[in-house]
C-alpha cells in the first residue's frame, strides 16, 4: 500500500473495516469498549489521527455472509480489512472446507478492490474434539499463505479460556478481554499503516 503511511498523517483518511462476529461487535459491552474502538483510541494516542475505524461486525454471523457484507461496505471504500470471522462456523460445527472457501472468496474480493487484508486466526474450544479443532485452526494458516496476507495467529490470545477476561458465558470477552485483543491486533495495524 504505497502512500498509506503518508495518508495516515494527512488527508484523506485511512479507512479500516473490521468484518467480524460477536467478538468484534463487542457483544455484551458498550461499542466504545470493543477492541476496534479501543484500537482507534490507541492510534489517536499515538498521534495517528487520520484513521477511520468502521466496525461492520454482526453477532452470530458466519463466513457465509462475509462476501455479501464486504460488497455492501465496498461503497465506503475501506483501505484495510480486518477479517475476523469463522468462530461461529466452528461453534456450529460447520464444514471447515466451506469456511475456507467463503473466507478465500472474501479475501480475493478485498484484494481485487485494493484492500489490505489482515486475517484474524481463530481456534475452537477443546470440547469440539481434536480432529475438528486442528482442521479448523489450520484453515487460517493455509489462507494466509495462499493469499500472501498478514495473519494474527490467534485473535483471542491471552483471552480464550480465561474467566477473568471473559463474560460469564465464557466465550465473549469482557472489557479487559477487549483491551488484550486490542494489544494483540495493534502491531498488525501499525505495520500496515506505517508500511511505506
Amino acid at each position: 500500500m504505497p502512500g498509506m503511511f503518508a495518508r495516515a498523517w494527512g488527508n484523506p483518511k485511512i479507512k479500516i473495516l473490521f468484518l467480524g462476529d460477536s467478538i468484534t461487535a463487542g457483544y455484551g459491552i458498550a461499542q466504545e469498549d470493543a477492541y476496534p474502538a479501543l484500537l482507534g483510541q490507541k492510534l489517536e494516542s499515538l498521534g495517528i489521527h487520520h484513521v477511520e475505524i468502521m466496525n461492520g461486525s454482526i453477532s452470530g454471523s458466519t463466513t457465509a455472509s462475509a462476501l455479501s457484507r464486504l460488497k455492501w461496505f465496498q461503497k465506503a471504500a475501506p483501505d484495510i480489512l480486518v477479517l475476523a470471522l469463522g468462530a461461529n462456523d466452528g461453534l456450529r460445527g460447520l464444514s471447515v472446507e466451506n469456511m475456507e472457501e467463503n473466507l478465500g472468496q472474501t479475501i480475493t474480493f478485498a484484494k481485487n478492490n485494493n484492500m489490505d487484508v489482515i486475517l484474524a486466526g481463530m481456534q475452537i474450544p477443546p470440547n469440539y474434539g481434536p480432529e475438528y479443532a486442528d482442521a479448523f485452526k489450520q484453515v487460517f494458516t493455509t489462507l494466509a499463505d495462499d493469499h500472501g496476507i498478514a495473519l494474527i495467529p490467534f485473535l483471542l490470545e491471552g483471552v480464550g479460556g480465561r474467566p477473568d477476561m471473559n463474560q460469564p458465558d465464557g466465550i465473549h470477552p469482557n472489557r479487559a478481554g477487549h483491551q488484550q485483543i486490542a494489544k494483540t491486533v495493534l502491531p498488525f495495524i501499525l505495520k500496515r499503516i506505517q508500511e511505506p
Binding site: 474450544p125 477443546p126 470440547n127 474434539g129 481434536p130 480464550g160 479460556g161 465464557g170 466465550i171
Partner: peptide
C-alpha cells in the same frame, strides 16, 4: 474423552 480441558466451553 479429553474433551474437558482448559478452554473447553462447558
Amino acid at each position: 474423552t479429553g474433551l474437558i480441558r482448559f478452554g473447553s466451553r462447558v
